[in-house]
Every structure is written in C-alpha cells, then in structure tokens.
Amino acid sequence: MLTKDGIPSVEDLSAVTPPTKRLNQGPVAVIECFQEIPCNPCADACPSGAITMPGNISARPIFDENKCNGCGICVTRCPGLAIFVVDFSYAANEAMLKIPYEFCPLPESGEEVQVLDRAGKTAGVARVIRVQQQANKTTVLWLAVPKDIALDVRNIRRKMGAMS
C-alpha cells in the first residue's frame, strides 16, 4: 500500500496505465506518480506536450497518451524515478521496457538480466537492448521483457560490485 511501503495497488496502477489498444500501438509512458508533491520536471521536459500540470506544481501530472511518442525524456528527468516507457509492439512475445537506473556497475547491451517487480521480487529474465547513459546520470535501460510481466517489471537485479 502506498502509504505504508510505497507499493501502488492494482487500482492505483490501473488509473495510470494506458489502455491495451494504446499499449499495442507503440511506446508510451507510464507515469507512476500518485502523490501531490511540489514537482514538475516531467511536464517541463516533455517535448510533445503530453504531460501537463495546470494550476500549481503540487498537482499530479495530467497525461495524454495520444500525444506521447515514448521518447523517454521524462524517464530520465523525473526526480522520483517514477516514469517508465513500455512498448507492446516491439515483438510478438516481448515488450520493450525503458526503466531509469542509477546504480553501478551498469549492465551491458546484449546481457541477460534478472528483472524485479515493484516489491523487489524476481519476476523473470530480460535482455538488455540498450544502455542509454545520460548527462544527468540517470541511465535509461532498454529491456526486452516477456509481455506477461512487462507491466510489473520495474528494476533489474544488481551485481554487488561497487566496493573497493
């Protein structure tokens, strides 16, 4: 439950997940921002005007999935790392998922990684398609994940390797 552990419920998620028809058309953002906090970099960053925040900056973002082309700029800009892009048109059995990632070591393109759900539990295995490093250090990982877990996967399992 969001108020107890930050994990959104099925109801919370259904309100922000674009309809299946849109998911199958091509890449689109899923904005998992549920709380009214003073914050607007997503609306500021979106070049298509798909994310707006009329009124004060504490409002939740308003998302128009038809204006969104899944470019993923919002994924790297969101300070809460709460935005993901999913593309169900990627392949027959796989969706492309773009997630923000701020750990090292970074995985490599072509690598197979274990993927985790919102509670950090292993959800399955995915292939890293691209590691898109950014100047602001929020890397965007492009993962090919099985379609049946694409809406649950939100992280990859880290290799513990940052110590001297």
């Binding site: 969001l2 930050g6 959104p8 921002c33 906090i37 300070p79 809460g80 985790l116 992280n155």
Partner: peptide, 21 residues
C-alpha cells in the same frame, strides 16, 4: 505510515529493501 514521499519508498522497494511500519 511512511512520512517520506511515496516515490522515494517505491525506488527502495523495487531494490528489495522492505519498509516495516
């Protein structure tokens, strides 16, 4: 309940760190 922003809690949960209120 947690007092911090839910997005901070979400980031930590998806790394497998439990939050025990």
């Amino acid at each position: 309940k947690i007092g911090g922003y839910w997005v901070h809690a979400s980031k930590i949960q998806r790394c497998g760190v439990p939050i025990l209120t």
